[in-house]
Protein backbone atom coordinates (compact mmCIF):
# COMPACT_ATOMS: atom_id res chain seq x y z
CA UNK A 1 0.00 0.00 0.00
CA UNK A 2 1.29 3.46 -0.86
CA UNK A 3 0.51 5.97 1.89
CA UNK A 4 0.27 8.90 -0.52
CA UNK A 5 -1.86 7.11 -3.09
CA UNK A 6 -4.02 4.68 -1.14
CA UNK A 7 -4.38 6.26 2.27
CA UNK A 8 -3.99 10.04 2.36
CA UNK A 9 -7.11 12.04 1.53
CA UNK A 10 -9.41 9.00 1.63
CA UNK A 11 -12.78 9.19 3.34
CA UNK A 12 -12.88 7.50 6.75
CA UNK A 13 -16.09 5.68 7.61
CA UNK A 14 -17.03 4.16 10.96
CA UNK A 15 -18.38 0.65 11.59
CA UNK A 16 -21.83 1.68 10.37
CA UNK A 17 -20.65 3.53 7.28
CA UNK A 18 -21.03 6.96 8.89
CA UNK A 19 -18.45 9.56 7.81
CA UNK A 20 -15.74 10.32 10.38
CA UNK A 21 -13.48 12.59 8.31
CA UNK A 22 -10.65 12.39 5.80
CA UNK A 23 -7.20 10.98 6.30
CA UNK A 24 -5.81 14.51 6.50
CA UNK A 25 -2.40 13.27 7.58
CA UNK A 26 -0.77 10.18 9.07
CA UNK A 27 1.45 9.72 12.09
CA UNK A 28 4.44 7.49 11.49
CA UNK A 29 6.37 5.62 14.13
CA UNK A 30 9.41 3.36 14.04
CA UNK A 31 9.36 -0.16 15.48
CA UNK A 32 12.21 -2.03 17.22
CA UNK A 33 13.85 -3.06 13.94
CA UNK A 34 13.89 0.51 12.66
CA UNK A 35 11.02 -0.10 10.20
CA UNK A 36 8.59 2.80 10.02
CA UNK A 37 4.87 2.05 10.21
CA UNK A 38 1.65 4.05 10.25
CA UNK A 39 0.74 4.57 13.89
CA UNK A 40 -2.35 6.73 13.52
CA UNK A 41 -4.60 8.63 11.15
CA UNK A 42 -4.91 12.36 11.81
CA UNK A 43 -8.20 14.08 11.10
CA UNK A 44 -9.26 17.70 10.96
CA UNK A 45 -8.40 21.08 9.52
CA UNK A 46 -5.36 21.36 11.82
CA UNK A 47 -3.66 18.38 10.25
CA UNK A 48 -4.87 19.38 6.80
CA UNK A 49 -3.73 22.98 7.17
CA UNK A 50 -0.27 21.91 8.28
CA UNK A 51 -0.05 19.63 5.28
CA UNK A 52 -1.23 22.27 2.80
CA UNK A 53 1.19 24.84 4.20
CA UNK A 54 1.52 28.47 3.11
CA UNK A 55 -0.60 31.34 4.33
CA UNK A 56 -3.87 29.53 3.64
CA UNK A 57 -2.72 26.36 5.36
CA UNK A 58 -1.54 28.28 8.43
CA UNK A 59 -4.85 30.11 8.59
CA UNK A 60 -6.82 26.88 8.27
CA UNK A 61 -4.77 25.16 10.98
CA UNK A 62 -4.79 28.26 13.18
CA UNK A 63 -8.57 28.68 13.22
CA UNK A 64 -9.02 24.95 13.82
CA UNK A 65 -6.54 25.06 16.72
CA UNK A 66 -8.44 27.91 18.33
CA UNK A 67 -11.67 25.88 18.26
CA UNK A 68 -10.08 22.72 19.65
CA UNK A 69 -10.97 21.89 23.27
CA UNK A 70 -8.32 22.81 25.82
CA UNK A 71 -7.05 19.46 27.15
CA UNK A 72 -6.45 17.91 23.70
CA UNK A 73 -5.48 20.73 21.38
CA UNK A 74 -3.98 18.57 18.59
CA UNK A 75 -5.81 17.05 15.62
CA UNK A 76 -8.12 14.08 16.13
CA UNK A 77 -5.98 10.97 16.23
CA UNK A 78 -7.24 7.51 15.32
CA UNK A 79 -4.85 4.66 16.18
CA UNK A 80 -4.25 2.55 13.10
CA UNK A 81 -5.35 -0.57 15.07
CA UNK A 82 -8.91 0.67 14.68
CA UNK A 83 -8.75 0.42 10.88
CA UNK A 84 -10.59 -2.69 9.75
CA UNK A 85 -10.12 -2.42 6.02
CA UNK A 86 -8.96 0.02 3.33
CA UNK A 87 -11.06 -0.01 0.18
CA UNK A 88 -12.28 3.07 -1.69
CA UNK A 89 -12.72 4.32 1.87
CA UNK A 90 -10.93 3.67 5.14
CA UNK A 91 -13.30 1.57 7.25
CA UNK A 92 -12.97 1.57 11.03
CA UNK A 93 -13.96 -1.25 13.37
CA UNK A 94 -15.58 1.11 15.90
CA UNK A 95 -18.59 3.42 15.96
CA UNK A 96 -17.85 7.12 15.60
CA UNK A 97 -19.62 7.77 18.92
CA UNK A 98 -16.50 6.41 20.60
CA UNK A 99 -14.24 8.89 18.79
CA UNK A 100 -13.77 12.56 19.70
CA UNK A 101 -16.18 14.84 17.86
CA UNK A 102 -14.71 17.47 15.50
CA UNK A 103 -14.81 20.81 17.42
CA UNK A 104 -16.26 22.81 14.50
CA UNK A 105 -19.20 20.39 14.24
CA UNK A 106 -19.98 20.66 17.99
CA UNK A 107 -19.60 24.43 17.97
CA UNK A 108 -21.88 25.01 14.96
CA UNK A 109 -24.43 22.53 16.25
CA UNK A 110 -24.63 24.10 19.70
CA UNK A 111 -24.43 27.75 18.63
CA UNK A 112 -26.40 27.72 15.38
CA UNK A 113 -28.14 24.61 14.11
CA UNK A 114 -29.78 23.44 17.35
CA UNK A 115 -31.29 26.90 17.89
CA UNK A 116 -33.37 26.54 14.73
CA UNK A 117 -36.66 24.64 15.04
CA UNK A 118 -36.66 21.28 13.30
CA UNK A 119 -32.94 20.61 13.68
CA UNK A 120 -33.85 17.14 14.91
CA UNK A 121 -35.92 16.04 11.92
CA UNK A 122 -34.48 14.31 8.89
CA UNK A 123 -35.55 15.75 5.55
Amino acid sequence: MLIGFDLLDRQILDRDGEPVGKVDDVELAVDGNGTPYVAALLIGQQALGDRIGGVLGRWLAGTARRLAPAPTPGPIRIPYDLVAEVTSSVNLSVSRDLLPEPPLESWLRDHLINRIPGADNAG
Binding site: Q11, I12, E18, P19, V20, G21, K22, D24, I43, Q45, L48, P102, L104, E105, S106, L108, R109, L112, I113, N114, I116, G118, A119, D120, N121, A122, G123
Partner: peptide, 20 residues
Protein backbone atom coordinates in the same frame (compact mmCIF):
# COMPACT_ATOMS: atom_id res chain seq x y z
CA UNK B 1 -13.60 18.00 0.44
CA UNK B 2 -13.21 18.10 4.23
CA UNK B 3 -14.81 14.70 4.88
CA UNK B 4 -17.69 16.10 6.97
CA UNK B 5 -21.00 14.35 7.47
CA UNK B 6 -23.29 15.54 4.69
CA UNK B 7 -26.64 14.87 3.15
CA UNK B 8 -30.26 15.83 3.00
CA UNK B 9 -31.33 12.56 4.63
CA UNK B 10 -29.49 13.41 7.84
CA UNK B 11 -30.95 15.37 10.71
CA UNK B 12 -29.55 18.91 10.44
CA UNK B 13 -27.94 18.62 13.88
CA UNK B 14 -26.20 15.48 12.69
CA UNK B 15 -24.58 17.48 9.87
CA UNK B 16 -24.19 20.94 11.40
CA UNK B 17 -21.25 21.99 9.22
CA UNK B 18 -23.03 20.85 6.04
CA UNK B 19 -26.19 22.76 6.90
CA UNK B 20 -24.20 25.86 7.85
Amino acid sequence: YFGWAWGKFRRPNGAARFHT
